[in-house]
Design a protein around this nucleic acid. Structure first.
Length: 289
DNA sequence: GACACGTGGAG
DNA sequence: TCTCCAAGTGT
């Protein structure tokens, strides 16, 4: 399985800027945060702008957090921008401005969990880690476990599978990115391209006749009328404004007052919005007002 | 472990 | 239209 996947990757890997030879660990870290729950096509232009503007952690750390949120644009989950800014500050404080190389140091940074710590350690520093993202989990669910989809949340069994398949130190990073790419391009969630798959002949799910998932249906996330939608509208207004925004302008984006206030309060509590005197609101500044 | 958390493209 | 889902994390 390893040789087939690695060979497939060398012939089919996408040419992404965070994989370029001149990439930096900082660039890899920024890409991993941006790619959380977000498609590559939407990330790439924003990533380029961020790296041009803030080529080192110290450059972002010196910026106001509100600028990071503004430059995040419409990538979604703007708390990621806030945490990435906080991570940059922590890297300056704790690591002298250099992205740390170990899993333990990485996972201690804000916004970095198990997946991102393993991914950065592996892709940026060549460390040997099981990198368990949604793509990898789906590939192993099919190829190894013989099911259409992985469990809702990562399990100990999945970790054992991923760890057990991890090759030696020399090829572990290439293996990790190759399996991920296979999941992203071939072993996709909706319509897997099995005829193009390098391990189709040894895929447990395929060999079992591609049985449909027998687990409980995964319920989608509601959107219309939710607090999340209200928050999104509030953030859009604040992002696009040059300076502080009067509250009436925020009130105009959502008709239901209780939910609107709750959403705004939550954004303030999350540190994504800063309230000012005189019923004004803006993206957060690092300076006291 | 369940939930909240943005956004927009594909089928 | 409407559902699904895209390199998860924090609580």
């Amino acid at each position: 399985m390893h040789a087939a996947v690695l060979s497939w990757y060398s012939a089919n890997a996408r040419d992404l800027p965070w994989r370029a030879p001149d990439r930096t660990p900082w660039g890899v870290l920024v890409s991993e945060i941006m790619l959380q729950q977000t498609p590559v096509v939407r990330v790439e232009p924003v990533w380029r702008e961020w790296l041009r503007r803030w080529p080192r952690p110290a450059d972002l750390a010196a910026e106001e957090p509100g600028e990071a949120i503004r430059a995040w644009g419409r990538l979604g989950y703007p708390r990621r921008a806030l945490r990435l800014h906080a991570a940059a500050a922590a890297i300056v404080e704790r690591h002298d401005g250099a992205v740390p190389a170990t899993y333990d140091e990485l996972i201690a940074l804000p916004g970095i969990g198990d997946y991102t710590a393993a991914a950065v350690a592996s892709f940026a520093f060549g460390a040997r880690h099981a990198v368990l993202d949604t793509n990898v989990r789906r590939v192993f669910a099919r190829a190894v476990a013989g099911t259409q989809y992985p469990p809702a949340a990562p399990t100990a069994a999945e970790r054992r599978t991923a760890t057990g398949l991890l090759p030696g130190p020399d090829t572990a990073p290439a293996w990790a990115v190759a399996v991920m790419e296979l999941g992203a391009l071939v072993c996709t969630a909706r319509s897997p391209r099995c005829p193009s798959c390098p391990i189709a002949t040894e895929c447990a799910w395929r060999l079992a006749g591609s049985p449909p998932d027998d687990g409980p249906p995964r319920r989608g996330q509601a959107w219309h009328g939710t607090d999340r939608q209200a928050r999104g509208r509030l953030m859009a207004v604040l992002r696009e404004a040059d300076g502080p925004v009067p509250k009436p302008r925020l009130d105009a984006i959502w008709p239901e007052p209780v939910q609107r206030e709750r959403a705004l309060d939550a954004l303030v509590a999350d540190g994504l919005v800063e309230p000012l005197d005189g019923d004004l609101f803006r993206l957060p500044s690092s300076r006291p007002t």
